[in-house]
Amino acid sequence: MKEFRSLIFIALAAIGAIVLSSCGTTTSHVLPAYEPPLARSDFQTVRTTAYTHTESDHLQFTNHNALGGELQAAGPPIHRADNSRVPSGFEGDYRIASYTPAPQPFSMNDEEPRTRPAVSKATPASMTTTRTVKIVRGKRVVVRAKPQPPKIGSAAADWSRWPVGTTFRLLSTGQIYRVDDYGWALAGRNTIDLYMATPAEMNAWGARQEPIQILRWGERDEALRFLAPHQDYKHIRRMVLELQGNEEAAARLQ
Rank of each mutant, 00 (worst) to 15 (best):
Q231C: 09
K134Q: 13
Q44T: 06
A102E: 08
R220C: 00
V141T: 10
L12T: 13
L253V: 10
E201S: 11
L171F: 13
T123M: 04
T25C: 13
R220P: 14
V133A: 11
N190M: 06
D180Q: 08
R80F: 02
T48I: 08
Y233S: 09
D93I: 13
E247H: 14
Q244D: 13
R161A: 04
A250P: 12
M239T: 11
E91T: 10
P149V: 02
D42E: 09
R169C: 05
Y195R: 02
G138E: 02
R216M: 10
R252D: 05
E70T: 15
A102T: 11
A223H: 08
I214K: 03
Q104Y: 03
E242Y: 06
V46A: 03
S84Y: 02
A197T: 08
Q175N: 08
R216T: 04
A250E: 00
T191A: 04
V164Y: 06
D221H: 12
T48D: 00
D57M: 11
H64P: 09
R161W: 07
Q72M: 12
S126K: 14
G16I: 04
T115G: 13
S154W: 05
L215R: 10
E91C: 13
S107E: 03
L227G: 05
F90Y: 10
N109H: 05
V141R: 11
Q209Y: 05
P113V: 12
V143R: 08
L215D: 01
V240T: 08
Q60V: 15
L241E: 00
I214P: 10
D110I: 10
M202H: 01
M1W: 10
I8L: 15
S154I: 05
F90G: 15
V142G: 05
A125T: 11
L215Q: 09
E242N: 14
I78W: 00
R169F: 07
A33E: 08
T166L: 06
Y99S: 13
I96Y: 01
E35I: 07
F9P: 03
G188H: 01
A81N: 00
V30K: 14
E219I: 14
A33F: 04
G183T: 07
Y182L: 15
I214D: 01
N109R: 11
Q60S: 13
L7N: 12
R238L: 04
N65W: 11
E242A: 15
N190W: 04
V136C: 10
S84P: 05
S84C: 10
A251F: 02
D110R: 01
A228N: 11
L171E: 05
L170V: 14
S88I: 13
R178I: 14
E3H: 12
S107W: 01
D193H: 04
G75R: 09
D110H: 00
K146A: 14
K121Q: 09
P105H: 03
A118I: 15
A97Q: 06
G218W: 03
R189H: 04
R116A: 07
N65M: 07
H230M: 12
K139T: 10
